[in-house]
Design a binder for these strands. Structure first.
Length: 763
DNA sequence: GAGTTTGAAACT
DNA sequence: CAGTTTCAAACTC
């Protein structure tokens, strides 16, 4: 079973699934005191469906003798890395955006296999790793995570690192993370969104193991293009980095694994492996003697940790220990799924897990470092999983009522949606938490699953980006109560202002200062900044119930808010009708909710109407025309009659000139009035003492040089206005005199007010 | 603010 | 696909 099916990656919007970053990985840099993997060749980076040609093994041991391990027989063309350490600390893998760092704190044998951009944590399958562990005087510690896959996903913009910390059980207890032949535990770190910044490859050049001794920190970056040959049951699949800022390998916190979206390694596919020796961390709360800590330290990004069971593995209770040192602004969703319905337990690092509302959020993205707090309550629909995608104004939510793990273990059943990324019934939601805080993990012991469709959704749209807000799919046949709900980000903000949200937010997790900045897709060709800076007009629908595309709110994928509509159904209270309407619209036009203004063909304007207008009487020079309204010219696909909205159109030029002139006039008048007001106020402030002392100045006393200048500017502006509008001289004079009168009135009123204020003060 | 015009959306 | 109707925004007075 794939940890994350290829369909899942393909399904995710481009904004959050940047697969190019893999290929952007430069060749590794040899030397440098850090472990380096074999520089990748020009071979395209294999994706999930690709098959590497060779394998690369990296072993991280805790002893200098691990150099022998480093000399372990590498695969035909694989590079083997070894990082050893003598400390008995949890396995910590850290990385900046450009550096995958394996902190040498691992004593038990531990294998990380990285294949196809995957770092696979394996039990030490090789004797070298065991020997290396013995050489440091510690018993081999092996994780045993059969039947589980850990998926760590951070979705966001570039530069946000993933902090992954793997802690073993009690010291002296061997744990097996997996086996090359058992398709058991798989850990996948997926960073969605942004570009991978894995550029520097630190590892042993020439397919050699490198032992790092005496170093507090080891840096390893897997060459993504190096062929390998090993199927790794346990995989740390590292995807592109979300954010590289603020993360230093020298930090005392857990190291980080950063990478990019990696593809599932098929059985038999060569893979690079890293063998780690690790010591179990007794400080970690464990279940079944297995602990996994994932710590996105100092990363503004949000990390989703998903443990997905392998269908072929035995079902065992697993535990995940999440570190409490989650940086502010981070959000972690940890979901673990076991096979065959075996329960999964999650434990917080301080045994203070709290049950929270059955809400779960997956945050994708971190635009500009801004963080989203997307824990939202959906009172009417408690089983809501929220995903906020950067660049999209929608929150994709799928509602899942958990039945049995076995049913979820067969996502390819009758459902037409195909494989799903499924989360186990036990959810763990972590809100942003300061590093110094205590327990931060809140566990919702509800039978809920976050399911992300791994395949296109033929019922609605083949792509998330096409999903309209509020989309809910009918439950898959035999799949239980499964559905989708896509909630506009705007509405999430509204929800976050509700008492319910306050309750959820006031739990263990302090809400970030800035709750949320909505990321939106370009709306009608406008940049998000443009769309956000300009408040949406309230609709006035009366007959459409705001459930047809006549309604701009509905068409833009937003709930009506502060509108003037009547009988509005475009809200959560009428979610059923709304979803039905959405489906109807999509049935009629699959791209109904896509922006109408998009990029045109090459050579044409950057922005053009996707369908073109059909104007007949407006000449495409009024806002009736969608092209003109969007401030773009009509294109060849328009079917308008008598179009005057083209580049050389004199009417258009005149119109644009007039519009510009009017805008300039407005700006000038506004500036002049503002200046006059400020000057008057300033004068009043300066003359107040005189008034207070003198006991009464006449208003003309306030006509100072500054006031005169400002008044003259206003009069000149009025004269210009009269001239531009071709007013006759008499009318122009009248306008100027009127303006002069206004100025005088302002002066007099201000003076009188100042005098009155002064008198009141004196009293 | 009421009425008219306009063109997209919806419908047939 | 074309013609018609419905609808809400844009526009005019």
């Amino acid at each position: 079973m794939d940890v994350v099916s290829p369909e899942l990656n393909s399904l995710l919007p481009d904004e959050i699934m940047d697969t190019e970053a893999i290929e952007d990985l430069p060749p590794s840099q040899p030397g440098g005191g850090a472990v380096q993997s074999q520089p990748s060749d020009d071979t395209p980076v294999p994706m999930e469906t690709d098959t590497p040609a060779a394998s690369e093994h990296l072993s991280l041991c805790s002893d200098a003798t691990s150099a022998e391990h480093a000399k372990a027989p590498p695969t035909s063309s694989g590079a083997t890395l070894s990082i050893s350490t003598a400390s008995q600390l949890p396995i910590s893998i850290s990385s900046t955006s450009s550096l995958l760092t394996l902190k040498p704190r691992l004593t038990p044998p531990f294998t990380i296999s990285a294949a196809n951009h995957q770092i696979i944590l394996n039990k030490v399958a090789s004797a070298q790793a065991t020997e290396a562990a013995k050489s440091i005087g510690s018993q081999p510690q092996v994780f045993k995570q059969e039947g589980q896959k850990l998926l760590v996903t951070t979705i966001g913009k570039s530069g946000q690192p993933i902090m992954l910390q793997v802690a073993g059980g009690k010291p002296g207890v061997s744990q097996t993370l997996g086996d090359h032949k058992s398709q058991a535990p798989q850990f996948k770190v997926v960073t969605i969104g942004g570009r991978s910044e894995l550029k520097q490859v630190v590892g042993s050049a020439g397919n050699q193991l490198t032992t790092l001794q005496g170093q507090q920190l080891k840096a390893v970056q897997i060459a993504t293009k190096t062929p390998v040959s090993s199927a790794a049951p346990i995989k740390y699949i590292i995807t592109k980095t979300v954010n590289s800022k603020g993360l230093s390998p020298q930090t005392s916190v857990s190291p980080v694994i950063t990478g990019r979206v990696l593809t599932q390694t098929s059985p038999g596919i060569p893979s690079r492996t890293i063998t780690l020796s690790e010591t179990l961390n007794s400080n970690m709360q464990s279940i079944s003697g297995k602990k996994i800590a994932i710590s996105p330290l100092k990363s503004p990004s949000k990390v989703t940790v998903v443990s997905v069971a392998s269908p072929t593995s035995n079902a065992t209770q697993k535990s995940m220990t999440l570190p409490v040192n989650v940086a502010l602004g981070q959000q972690i969703l940890t979901v673990q799924q076991s096979t065959s319905g075996s329960p999964v337990k999650l434990a917080t690092g301080q045994n203070t897990a709290q049950n929270i509302k059955p809400v779960q959020s997956v945050t994708m993205g971190g635009v500009g470092g801004s963080q989203f707090k997307t824990i939202i309550p959906l009172g009417s629909q408690p089983n809501v999983q929220q995903i906020q995608v950067p660049g999209s104004r929608f929150h994709y939510v799928r509602l899942v009522t958990s039945t049995t793990a076995s049913s979820l273990g067969h996502p390819s059943g009758p459902s037409t949606r195909g494989p799903l990324l499924q989360l186990n019934p036990v959810k763990q939601v972590m809100a942003p938490k300061p590093l110094t805080s205590g327990a931060v993990v809140t566990t919702a012991q509800t039978q809920q699953r976050l399911i992300m469709p791994a395949t296109p959704l033929p019922q609605i749209q083949p792509n998330f980006t096409n999903l309209p807000p509020g989309t809910v799919l009918a439950p898959a046949p035999g799949g239980g109560n499964v559905g989708y709900a896509v909630v506009p980000a705007q509405y999430v903000t509204q929800l976050q202002q509700t008492p319910f949200v306050t309750l959820a937010s006031s739990s263990t997790f302090p809400a970030p200062a800035g709750v949320q900045t909505q990321a939106r897709l370009p709306l009608n060709g406008l940049s998000p900044a443009e769309t956000t800076s300009r408040p949406r007009k309230p609709c006035n629908c009366t007959k459409s119930q705001c459930l047809k595309l006549y309604c701009d709110c509905f068409a833009n994928g937003e709930f009506c808010n502060n509108c003037n509509c009547n009988n509005c159904f475009n809200n959560l209270e009428h979610e059923t009708e709304r979803l039905k309407a959405i489906k109807t619209c999509l049935d009629r036009n699959p791209e109904a909710f896509k922006p109408k203004i998009g990029k045109g063909k090459q050579g044409e304007s950057d922005r053009r109407h996707s369908k073109g207008c059909n104007c007949k009487r407006s000449g495409c020079l009024k806002n009736y025309c969608e092209c003109y309204e969007a401030k773009i010219m009509c294109s060849s696909i328009c079917k308008c009659i008598g179009c005057k909205n083209f580049e050389e159109s004199p009417e258009r030029k005149t119109l644009m000139h007039l519009a510009d002139a009017a805008e300039v006039r407005v700006q000038q008048q506004t500036a002049a009035k503002t200046k006059l007001s400020s000057q008057i106020s300033d004068l009043l402030m300066r003359t107040t003492p005189v008034i207070s002392s003198g006991g009464g100045r006449l208003p003309y006393t306030f006509v100072t040089k500054e006031v005169l200048e400002a008044t003259c500017e206003c009069l000149l502006e009025q004269a210009k206005k009269a001239e531009q509008t071709h007013q006759p001289q008499v009318e122009a004079e009248r306008m100027i005199l009127e303006e002069f009168g206004h100025c005088l009135m302002r002066i007099i009123n201000s003076a009188g007010k100042a005098k009155a204020d002064c008198a009141s003060i004196n009293c």
